[in-house]
């Protein structure tokens, strides 16, 4: 089965690229002020954004770029999300551990709930009403071969008609999002969905 990538977005080093073209940039180097500045410039009007942890904010804004003009009819249960990273939610884990360790702190349920990487998938699902397959993988580096094979199998097994896939990673000194939209072969594609082309887009 031939699949197409119809849109992709990468966010790192204070810059947002959509389909390889610079879309937004900022002088903020830390993720939190940067991603909030991007939100305010983009104005999605979604106040729950501020409650998310920083890595969810990153994944949320990156997928916002994929879906903000998306107008095809896809059944919610056939719209899947497959994401990956290497650090899971380690920054948030440390924040929660701090509320556990410090004498004058009380463990925070609002931080704890974000100590699972798939919460980001949940946030994106709620935002866009997506009810398809869910999977969050942890790899040392972005494994385009494994992820593209898995996404391909979801289409072949008729479990999905549309899929958001990619890599959203965050550690204390570095953040990086690379996400793309996969659909059945169509005319408005920006690339074919295969390991080689995904890697080319990722390394751009």
């Amino acid at each position: 089965m031939n699949l197409s990538i119809t849109k992709y977005c990468s966010i790192k080093n204070g810059k947002v690229f959509v389909d390889g073209v610079e879309y937004f940039s900022s002088n903020e180097d830390k993720l939190n002020p940067f991603i909030k500045e991007f939100y305010r410039s983009e104005k999605p009007g979604y106040s729950k954004f501020f409650k998310m942890d920083d890595i969810s904010k990153l994944g949320f804004m990156a997928t916002e770029m994929l879906l903000k003009d998306f107008n095809k009819e896809v059944s919610p249960d056939k719209f899947s999300i497959v994401l990956s990273n290497s650090k899971s939610t380690l920054v948030t884990d440390q924040n929660f551990q701090d509320t556990v360790d410090k004498e004058d702190e009380i463990p925070s349920p609002a931080i704890f709930v974000y100590t699972l990487p798939n919460i980001m998938i949940g946030e994106i699902s709620i935002r866009h009403n997506l009810k398809g397959e869910n999977a969050f993988f942890i790899n040392k580096n972005f494994d385009s071969n494994f992820i593209s094979n898995y996404v391909h199998s979801l289409f072949c097994n008729q479990k999905t008609d549309c899929c958001i896939a990619g890599w959203v990673d965050y550690s204390n000194d570095k953040y990086e999002a690379f996400v793309y939209l996969v659909e059945k072969e169509c005319c408005n594609k920006v690339a074919n969905h295969n390991n080689e082309e995904i890697n080319k887009l990722y390394k751009k």
Partner: peptide, 9 residues
């Protein structure tokens, strides 16, 4: 199979 509620985290 897996699926999301798209309702609450």
């Amino acid at each position: 199979s897996s699926a999301n509620d798209a309702n609450h985290i």
